[in-house]
Design a protein around this nucleic acid. Sequence first.
DNA 1: CGCGTTCTTGACTGCTTTCAAAGATGGTGG
DNA 2: CCACCATCTTTGAAAGCAGTCAAGAACGCG
Lengths: 232, 232
Amino acid sequence: MRHAPVPATALSHPAATRLAALAPLSMRDRARLEQARSAPNIRQGREITAEGAPAELPRMVVAGWAALVRDFRDGRRQILSLLLPGEVLGDFHPSLPTTPWAVVALTEVAIADAPAADPDGALEQAYRAGADLQRAYTLNHIVRLGRMDAYERIADWLLETRDRLALSGLVDEGAFPMPLTQDMLGDLLGLTSVHVNRTLQVMRREGSVDLRSGWARLLRPAQLAEAAEYRA
Amino acid sequence: MRHAPVPATALSHPAATRLAALAPLSMRDRARLEQARSAPNIRQGREITAEGAPAELPRMVVAGWAALVRDFRDGRRQILSLLLPGEVLGDFHPSLPTTPWAVVALTEVAIADAPAADPDGALEQAYRAGADLQRAYTLNHIVRLGRMDAYERIADWLLETRDRLALSGLVDEGAFPMPLTQDMLGDLLGLTSVHVNRTLQVMRREGSVDLRSGWARLLRPAQLAEAAEYRA
DNA sequence: CGCGTTCTTGACTGCTTTCAAAGATGGTGG
DNA sequence: CCACCATCTTTGAAAGCAGTCAAGAACGCG
């Protein structure tokens, strides 16, 4: 189950959409975002290491899903944070001696350098707002893992993901890309893939979600939001 | 079980120690940190809201433990992030409409305004390094909650906390303050207080930790680190 | 059409929670 | 100085959500 291949050069890419939604970008900023040079695609499963960037320049995901991942010796794995299309990665702790996690491509991924911003400009403001959002996602993930049961975790995550992708203009009539396997979902949500499967079936049976072949659609978002106490 | 009262004016406070450990501060920076004016103490359980600060100036915890907390309607509670003495709070998403969490004093807490830093100076560098560390703690918390069992969560958290407090100069011959109740530990680690209690007893019986009346000492840190795959 | 990956399903196990109540502990007031 | 009270810790028994193990079905790709 691999989703559609990523074009080598994205025409109108999600990061431009997302950052323009976070601050009133000038046409010049938008153009620079659109024209950002894209690095060669990264294959599924590969690490997106900092090799190329000595000072770890900020980059943005143009297509595909990436994640920060930590692996245990015994095979357990935890996805710390997702990087969805349009989102910016970077600012990765140059000060820390060793980062105990890796950045991995969960699907085939296209990355581009994020254009430098004038410290007082709208683009910088958008970067900041994006980083704030990213932090909110991370904190919300803690709530999911710490105090929600399987049903709530999945419901909450689906809602958050829909909203995140909507910012990048990737939600089309309520449907959005969801290329993660149930295995990956388990590693993200602190569950086993077996239990993810059973819980998804409950949701499907009650008609809450339509989830298949790399796409998702929330059929009863209000019910899911109520169950997870989701706050848009 | 309340720990020793916080002096209204801390003489040599932990934030100065911590920031000096993160970057080579000038004597002038140190002096400004020491002299930072402290707001009135905040009583245990109270919210540390942004009332006073229109632009949400960064502040630092001079004494006591605070936390970002999210409460559920049904009484469940999750501690998202701890703020230990010496650590900086601030940069709290002015861009987000509503933050779905509160900053709460877990013990009596003393807060002071963090002095402004020259953008190119060592102090700014220390603030940045501190923020990076804070982010690493948050990501590690996700691993704890997502993929560790109760024993591993507690072991990992004790080790992290010891190292965090050591940065602020608060670890004395291996002993460090630990004012959280087992209830709070449960809310932090995604467990019930009952299970925290049982797990702590296992650790005590095997002689791994000495934990009582607001203080902790790790007797076999290597064993704990091995169990939790802790990476200093 | 064949193979590898992903998804489903079932039975069993177990870590953690729930519910309840009995001890400790520390601060407070008589 | 001691009784009293609220809070916190400790224990026990029973229930439950999620994990484990295993095998078969379905799907997508070459």
